[in-house]
Design a binder for these strands. Sequence first.
DNA 1: GTCTATAATAGGATAGAC
DNA 2: GTCTATCCTATTATAGAC
Lengths: 185, 185
Amino acid sequence: MPTIKTSKEEILQKSLLLIWQKGYHDTSIGDLAITLGIAKSHFYYYFKGKEDLMMEILSYMLEKFTQILQRIVENPELDTSGKLQKLASKMARFYDFNGYSNGCLMANTALESVGKDYAFLPIVRKFFSTFIEYLTQIYSEKYPADEAARMAVQALQEFEGALLLTRLFADENYLKQALERIASR
Amino acid sequence: MPTIKTSKEEILQKSLLLIWQKGYHDTSIGDLAITLGIAKSHFYYYFKGKEDLMMEILSYMLEKFTQILQRIVENPELDTSGKLQKLASKMARFYDFNGYSNGCLMANTALESVGKDYAFLPIVRKFFSTFIEYLTQIYSEKYPADEAARMAVQALQEFEGALLLTRLFADENYLKQALERIASR
DNA sequence: GTCTATAATAGGATAGAC
DNA sequence: GTCTATCCTATTATAGAC
């Protein structure tokens, strides 16, 4: 039996972080190999190619994120306000690393893939539509359906804009204030 | 005297559009050459390199955008609401091409350059801080200074988020509705 | 101002030994 | 499961003729 030194899971996790930081196009297999401490070619033992890796990363993120949202929305112990609070704190932890943020991987990917023939687009779209759906569900407990839907879209937009500014100016206050605003509606 | 067939201005304009669509990393000198109808190497007659071109593009955008904002803010014939309306209609025309948007070049660039050693960052930051400053000035006519500043940041965030969704889902309604909201406050 | 040719390198990917 | 060696293509950039 062969010795497992590096697991696919480990490669996925570390690659995710690097691509999140540097962006898809600017992260080469070589960069990944150095970060992972493996030979460049060994990467292909785990993945068909760079695009294949990215698909797995995005799927992983979508799944994890959907889980988080689902648990909050379906938690019977939380009222509307509690759900929004919980969501905000989860997001803050998820996107903020010691006051610094890499922005939203999905948004970054979106901007790097729109208009091209990448397979990434459907999964990125799914991410955002899922986000809006769950948020609409929460706001629906307190507001009429159409109003809730509008609020969800607005909240997502503010959130993404805040992530952009947080990253660009390396100032987590944009993110924190946006989340406060969104949770208090 | 030599014959001028292609001007630097023309290269700049056309390059801007292509990079806006495809993104900086995914646009090669070769791509540009094809679009411009020139030899690949001829590009270097006008620009020191790709990064040099990008700097000029970003400077151009910053200048043009600052002009637009300045003219609106300093127009004595417009009241607060009129300024916001004017701004919204300018933005809609600037960012929306026949119902499709390429998103915000500055935001796209930001996400492609943050965390790297690119010279782009200062100019992208300047763009966003200028935007916030002018918007704060407009809201200040109607709201207290600190409230106006907060509203400006929020408006920018909604706007950028809306551009993201507009591009991702190829649906200009996100942009239109965000602009309506921002202008009516 | 524009082109052809070419250098130089980086990046994605495969073959095959261990 | 991991490595070295290698291939191939794309891409940035330069040299020099017209």
